[in-house]
């Protein structure tokens, strides 16, 4: 029974967190909206003036925006596809009886704990370097020409690195979900003579539908704003080939010092993320009631 006193206490305890998060959400966002309506360049101080929606028009009609939007979508889509298509069989494999499973689990989960700048540089240099990288040597063993990854397929190279980082996450979540699957259900299906494939399609896969959705939503939120991996490997290039929205905004803000245009871009990113967030929050909310 909550007395009035404890209710008051509860509210007092909650206030600092709510206030901080509220300020954190409102102030920068309001400023972003405000800056987005200004002509404001840090290299040209004193020239700030209200330009209405001019920045949005500029940002949205900038060919760099379309290119970076396309790169963002390709990057998010490819990483999602790779991590789930590989993650499902990998989780199924780890759900089997495996000798030394705990060690295998450790090896599989490890990439997720490597800081982004380390994984990007290790892949770029030690593995994907066109002359001294391990991949070049392996290609040579098979008599194939070495691939100059970051020149010939820059976006794919970035996708490969990010997929390596996120595959463990997808696998771990799917594995957790598999382990909560009722064994008896599978046993019953087996006794009824169901093949392994139909057990998978009719029992396992439906059970994985929700965790897969969760993986898709959470990965999307993080992948929409991938930054460090691009920053240390390609710097958005060659040309605009690996520039995603996050990197475009960064370069407009901190390289060209165009505050107005970068703010307009920032709001575009917020809108994109919110579309995804809307669905994620609904799923989590439904779970909260159950």
């Amino acid at each position: 029974m909550a007395t009035q006193q404890t209710q008051l206490l509860a509210r007092t305890l909650l206030t600092p967190a709510v206030a901080l998060l509220f300020i954190w959400m409102i102030v920068p966002l309001a400023l972003t909206i405000y800056f987005a309506t200004l002509h404001y360049n840090l290299l040209d101080p004193g020239s700030e003036s209200f330009v209405g929606l001019e920045n949005f028009r500029y940002f949205l009609t900038d060919p760099a925006f379309l290119a970076s939007l396309q790169n963002t979508l390709v990057l998010v889509g490819s990483v999602l596809a790779i991590t789930i298509i590989l993650g499902v069989p990998l989780a199924l494999l780890l759900d089997q009886q495996v000798v030394g499973l705990s060690i295998v689990r450790l090896m599989v989960i490890a990439p997720f704990f490597v800081m982004p700048t380390v994984s990007a540089l290790v892949w770029k240099n030690l593995l994907m370097h066109p002359v001294s990288g391990l991949f070049a040597w392996i290609a040579h063993l098979f008599g194939l020409p070495a691939i100059d990854w970051f020149n010939d397929a820059p976006l794919f190279s970035v996708i490969l690195i990010i997929s390596w980082q996120w595959l463990p996450f997808a696998t771990l979540i799917l594995l957790t979900a598999l382990q909560s699957l009722d064994e008896e259900q599978k046993e019953a299906a087996e006794m009824d003579g169901a093949s392994a494939i139909s057990t998978f399609i009719y029992i396992t896969l439906p059970h994985l539908a929700r965790p897969i959705t969760v993986v898709i939503l959470i990965e999307t939120i993080f992948l929409l704003t991938v930054f460090a991996e691009i920053f240390v490997t390609t710097g958005g290039g060659p040309g605009l080939q690996t520039t995603n929205i996050a990197f475009l905004i960064y370069s407009q803000a901190l390289i060209q010092y165009d505050v107005g245009s970068a703010s307009a871009g920032g709001l575009v990113a917020v809108v994109l993320a919110n579309i995804v967030a809307f669905f994620l929050v609904r799923i989590v909310g439904r779970n909260l009631e159950a």
Partner: peptide, 17 residues
């Protein structure tokens, strides 16, 4: 849920301010 949604805001959206 509101707290969760603050986490969804892409950092790049507020980089400038």
């Amino acid at each position: 849920l509101w707290m969760l949604s603050t986490k969804m805001m892409p950092p790049v959206g507020v980089l400038v301010p």
